[in-house]
Design a protein around this nucleic acid. Structure first.
Lengths: 197, 197
DNA sequence: TGTTGTTCGACCGACGGTCGAACAATGAGA
DNA sequence: TCTCATTGTTCGACCGTCGGTCGAACAACA
């Protein structure tokens, strides 16, 4: 396997092990079974390793979402729900995710949120555009609107930043659904999936 | 003056100087004119110093916003604009932002964003409630809606997370304004202040 | 003079990152 | 096929800096 990927695997393993507490470059090198100097032959800095790991881990998830959207024949609201559920189930399988929500991994967490938003927003924007064509949504700026929706989801719903109770989360989801229904001039209940189940 | 506040002043000054690059505990001690050991007589850790600084600096800003809202006689949309401008001008004076937007301080950054959201959201919620009473807004969940609006501001507009151009920011603000106008059933142009100037 | 509160900077371990020596792999010229 | 020079790769000792500790020393006061 690629040496760079061996390094990323080592870091991922360490992040999953003990809350990422012992994730120094030396630790990564030891876990990867190579010298510390070699790490810096493949990566310029520790931050760059972070970036590469985030890139690698989320690439597959995003790709799955994209494929799902392209091969599904559904109206915009249904696609929204499909995407929402697909993404939720994918990330719940990502073992790293739980550790991202801890204080000491805030930097990589932030980077991964930024990646999610920038990768998913074009997909969400396409759904909105489809809704506009189908006359079920009204929206002049699909891309920016998609970013707004996702930023709420990334930030307000993040268990690493806020400790809401399930009831509070449901209230917020319901408020977002109403805001989107009216904001996009969509049919009542189009965004029910946000707070159901 | 209180020794603790002298230390906070020193840190604030250093953060304002060169993007917080030289803001080690030793630097803070030197700037404050005391020994490094004394720092740890007043604070348990560097994080605690920064928490105290965030608390002190944002308390005043939030308080200003609260007072401004209470003594202003304006309709809800005007109050929104007032609050927005007051907050923007206050935070632009805060040079701490540079420090917060560096990778290694992501944890503290998150904390301060969470503080902003939880402190400002009740104020925004009150504005929305006023708008509902005045029949200029329609909203069933003012508190949650306020949090949604603020989370967009805290996350999507954060220069430490995303590097948007001014034009892109304006597009996003315009999209948010439209979404809010429709989402709150407000009059066209109610949220123009978001993307003007 | 004893006690308590305060100050201090030398010191510590850990960190991210550097460095040059050493080792493998390659291929051109004889 | 045997050099040998070149290039790519590996390594851990080493560096400077950081956040944080520590005990000695000092100040204030009873």
């Amino acid at each position: 396997m690629d040496k760079a990927n061996i390094i990323l695997d080592a870091m991922k393993t360490l992040l999953e092990q003990d809350d990422g507490a012992s994730c120094s470059v030396s630790d990564i090198a030891k876990k990867a079974g190579i010298g510390k100097g070699s790490i810096y032959y493949y990566f310029k800095s520790k931050d760059e390793i972070f970036d590469a790991l985030v890139e690698r881990e989320y690439h597959q998830i995003i790709e799955n979402c994209r494929v799902l959207m392209n091969r599904s024949y559904a109206d915009a609201a249904q696609k929204f729900a499909l995407l929402f559920r697909s993404y939720r189930s994918s990330t719940s399988l990502l073992a790293m995710d739980h550790y991202l929500h801890q204080q000491q991994n805030a930097a990589i967490h932030q980077k991964s949120l930024a990646k999610i938003l920038s990768s998913l927003s074009p997909i969400v924007a396409d759904i909105i555009r489809q809704g506009v064509e189908e006359k079920s949504f009204r929206c002049e700026k699909p891309q920016e609107t998609a970013e707004i929706i996702l930023s709420v989801y990334c930030f307000l719903y993040d268990p690493g930043i806020f400790k809401w109770t399930p009831e509070q989360l449901k209230e917020k989801a319901s408020a977002l659904a109403t805001l989107l229904e009216n904001g996009l001039s969509a049919a009542k209940g189009s965004f029910q999936f946000l707070y159901q189940t």
